[in-house]
Simulated assay, not measured.
Amino acid sequence: MSRIIAGAAGGLPLLSVPGTATRPTTDRVKEALFSRLDAYEVIADARVLDLFSGSGSLGVESASRGAKIVDLVESADKAAAVSRSNADLVNKTLKQQTVRVHHLKVETYLDRVTSEDQWDLVLMDPPYPVENESLTTILATLVPHLAKGAVVVLERSSRSQEPDWPAGLERFAEKKYGETRLWFAEPTAARL
Rank of each mutant, 00 (worst) to 15 (best):
M1N: 10
R3I: 00
R3Q: 06
I4N: 02
I5N: 02
I5A: 00
A6T: 05
A6P: 04
A8G: 00
G10E: 02
P18L: 05
P18S: 06
G19E: 11
G19D: 13
T20Q: 14
A21K: 15
P24N: 08
T26N: 10
R28V: 09
R28Y: 15
V29F: 04
K30H: 06
K30Y: 11
E31A: 05
A32L: 03
L33H: 07
F34D: 05
S35F: 10
S35R: 09
R36W: 11
R36C: 14
D38N: 13
E41A: 14
V42K: 06
A44K: 10
D45Y: 04
V48W: 03
L49Q: 00
L49A: 02
F52A: 11
S53A: 15
G54K: 09
S55K: 09
S55I: 06
G56C: 05
L58Y: 01
L58F: 03
G59Q: 04
S62I: 08
A63W: 02
R65D: 05
R65T: 02
G66I: 00
G66N: 01
D71L: 13
L72Q: 01
V73S: 01
A80V: 14
V82K: 09
S83V: 05
R84M: 06
L89E: 07
V90Q: 02
V90N: 00
V90C: 01
N91H: 06
L94G: 00
K95A: 13
K95R: 15
K95N: 14
Q96M: 12
Q97H: 14
V99Y: 02
H102V: 10
H102F: 12
K105M: 07
V106F: 10
E107Q: 13
T108K: 11
D111Q: 15
V113R: 10
D117S: 11
D117F: 04
W119Q: 01
V122T: 04
D125K: 00
D125M: 08
P127T: 09
V130C: 09
E131F: 12
N132V: 15
N132R: 13
N132F: 11
L135F: 11
A140T: 04
A140P: 06
T141V: 07
T141M: 05
L142D: 00
P144M: 04
P144N: 01
A147D: 07
K148G: 12
V151D: 02
V153A: 13
L154C: 11
L154H: 05
R156H: 10
S158C: 04
R159D: 15
S160N: 11
S160Y: 04
S160P: 06
P163F: 12
P163A: 04
W165H: 00
W165V: 00
P166H: 06
G168Q: 08
L169S: 04
E170F: 12
Y177T: 01
Y177W: 08
A185E: 05
A185D: 03
E186V: 09
P187H: 11
A189Y: 08
L192V: 15
L192R: 15
